[in-house]
Design a protein around this nucleic acid. Structure first.
Length: 205
DNA sequence: TCCGAGATTCACT
DNA sequence: GTGAATCTCGGAG
């Protein structure tokens, strides 16, 4: 069976535009448990989202959008459902789901997923760091490496992109979701804007 | 024009 | 536990 058929068959599972409409924190929580799918380099990889962080636009000092529009963060100011990818520390990528209306600059960072499909592809892309399944996509930089997500994908839309999208999955109950301060930032770290699935061994930090 | 910090990860001590 | 790798951006000189 060719990949083309596979991709077409699963099209009806893709999350549509309405999914991205809620406020950023609600969207962050509803992303938990959903399936992140990449078809970068014509190779299929997917995983269950287990950890996210919310970044609240211009009022959030930890958010890239807080200092206005730049060449790097321009995608953050587009409408909800766009894919914002940026380079951090000069060597790793991070992938975000843009939220709220155009011009707001809010987004949800996908920090970790539980690998589901394409584990061999992920291991190949992760190199030495990919020996253990648990480490394939635990952390935003590792996740992007495993899924082949790079800056070229930034600006695509999760509803229409041929290389990155989200698929529906059973709703996660509120009781399974834990909150904490965001990781790796120095300002606004006390805000409870990191959400993760309690008990998952694929959560970072 | 230069310098330091950053939504990170890995190798090495 | 500590430091290096290396791109982007804001602020200092």
């Amino acid at each position: 069976m060719g990949n083309k058929i596979k991709i077409a068959e699963r099209r009806n599972r893709r999350l549509g535009g309405r999914f991205f409409a809620p406020d950023t924190v609600s969207l962050a929580k509803s992303l938990l448990g959903k399936r992140l799918v990449s078809f970068a380099d014509r190779k299929l990889t997917s995983g269950r989202i287990v950890e996210v962080e919310a970044y609240l636009g211009s009022n959030d000092p930890a958010c890239h959008a807080s200092r206005g529009v730049t060449a790097r963060n321009e995608v953050m100011f587009r409408s909800a459902g766009h894919c914002y990818v940026y380079l951090i520390y000069g060597m790793y990528h991070c992938v975000n789901v843009v939220s709220e209306g155009a011009g707001v600059g809010s987004a949800v960072l996908i920090r970790a997923v539980e690998p589901v499909e394409g584990l061999d592809v992920m291991k190949g892309r992760r190199g030495r760091g990919g020996q253990f399944e648990r480490d394939l996509a635990r952390g935003p930089g590792r996740l992007c490496q495993a899924f082949g997500i790079e800056r070229g994908i930034s600006g695509q839309h999760f509803v229409s992109s041929p290389v990155i999208w989200l698929e529906d999955a059973p709703q996660v109950s509120e009781g399974e979701i834990s909150a904490s301060g965001r990781i790796g930032i120095s300002v606004g770290a006390d805000l409870q804007l990191r959400f993760f699935l309690e008990g998952s061994r694929f959560v970072s930090g």
